[in-house]
Structures are given as structure tokens and as C-alpha cells.
Amino acid sequence: MINIQSLQVHYGNHLALDIRRPITIEKGDRVGILGSNGAGKTTLLNALLGIIPSKGKFSLEVDQEAIAVHMQANEYLTTVSVRSVMEAILGEKIEKRQDVMDLIRFFDFEESLKKKFQNLSGGQKQRLTLILVIAQKAPLIFFDEVTSGLDFDSRQALVSLISEHYQDRESTLCFITHYYEELENFADKLLLLDKGQVIDFGDKQELFHKYCGDTVFILDNTQENKKLTEDFRHLAAPAHLLALSANSKEEEINIAQRLMKADINYKRTNADIEIMTVNAKKHWEGGRS
């Protein structure tokens, strides 16, 4: 669906995106594109869409026009009703599109049709674009920071709705975000970006094994916990956490028994994207220095 051999984007003299390794996104993939602010996530999207100039070798299996995109910020005319905006975009009455009617019900958007865009809440604004983007029935869809500006519950609810909608569909989805938890149940591949460069790209599970081992135990970062676990392999983790890696069942049992015996609360995971990303970034930075 997307084949990138190399891709560079300059903003003036600043090299904002510099991809130098092959990246292939297959039909039906669910790809999470992760990175902090300024990592190049949206720049990558804009380059693929052809709305900013770029250099390099990349190809899309579909025309750029056949890509549906939920941008980070989506604005519409504010002086007309949402219904009028939707009908202008669809080119027909909403009632003539059963799929759109279904989406409106699915996203609980009926009441918002009468309102003007400026009077919608943050969540309703996101839903409007979601409905219109999904209604495009495109083979390749990008969701760029689709939950930005929403509270935690609304974020989770929106991602669940998107996941549910695409559960049995073949569309290729690329989900750009800096919220790791949104990708836990959504992505099967991850593209990790930092400062415009690729940290890594691959299957979510394989990346976890590569950087974290078989399983990871996550617990609070306290002096007691540090001392208790000093003989286990520690991974990089956010400042408030400790992450212990286990590469075999035996090692896993040892860690679990030690923590249970000391009555320490912990989380066992074999898919934590945040811990994996932190370690991938550390590994990548180490390789560069």
C-alpha cells in the first residue's frame, strides 16, 4: 500500500524528515505512527499526501486523492449548519447515504447536525470529521492525532469506536499519535519516529521482544523497589516507573515471586508500547552516539 525507500522534507534549511530505510505498509495493516512533538509524524503524512514538497523514493498503491485523512486540526465553514457542510462534502442529501446515516447513529451525532460547527464540542468536532472520513470508504486512511484535545475517557471511547468500526474491514489504517495507550489494541505495526528520523519500524510484538524481552514487569520507582529488584535486568522507563525484563518463564516466575513476597503492586505485560518505545529510543540514541 505504501512503499518508502527514502523520504526527505526540508522546511527552509531545517531537515524535518529524513527517512533512509525501507518502510513497507501492506494492505490491511493497522499502523501506529508514534513520536513526540516535532518527531515528523505529520510531516510524513503531508509528504505522502503531496501537500508539501518532498524528495526521495516512495510509492503509494492508491492515488493520493483516494487517501482519506483525519487531520490534526479540521476546520469547516462556521456560518452554516453541520448538515449543510456534510451535504456539501458528500455532494448529496445525507438521507440518500444509508452508510452515512448509520455512521451518524454509530457516533451518536444526530443532534449535532442542526448546530453550527463552532458550537460543537471538541469531541463532536472530531466525530464530524471521522464520519466524513470513514464515509469516503478509502482503501488507505490516516488518523492524525484524532483524539487531541479530548479528555482520557473521550479519547478511549473514540478509539474504541474507530476500532470497532474497522474490525472486519480491509482498509489500511495509519494512526498518528503520541498517546501510547491508544495503540495497545489498535495497531499491529509501529513506526517510531524521533527528530524526523526512523527509530524503528515493524511488527508491534516483534519490536517488544527486540527491545524488552519476553515480558516486562512495571512497578513504582521507589528506593525500596529499586533495592529489591537490583539483581534483575532493568529496562529504561519513564522516571516514575521501574521496568524489569524477563526473557524466560523461569526468570518471570522469579520476579513475580519476589514482588508478591514483598507485597509490591506490579503490572506484567508483553505488549506495553510506552516501555518498548522508551527502550527503542534509548537503543537508537546509543547507536548514534
Binding site: 451535504e87 458528500l90 455532494g91
Partner: peptide, 20 residues
């Protein structure tokens, strides 16, 4: 690419009227 249609035009006209 989509072609110009009456719903798009109608939306534009409403927008003009809506700007006092």
C-alpha cells in the same frame, strides 16, 4: 476529484449570507 454540485454551491451561498 469531486465535481462541483448544487449542495456545494448551496453551502457556499449560505456562507455568504451568513457573513453579515
Amino acid at each position: 476529484m469531486k465535481k462541483l454540485n448544487r449542495y456545494y454551491l448551496l453551502n457556499e451561498l449560505k456562507n455568504l449570507i451568513g457573513n453579515w
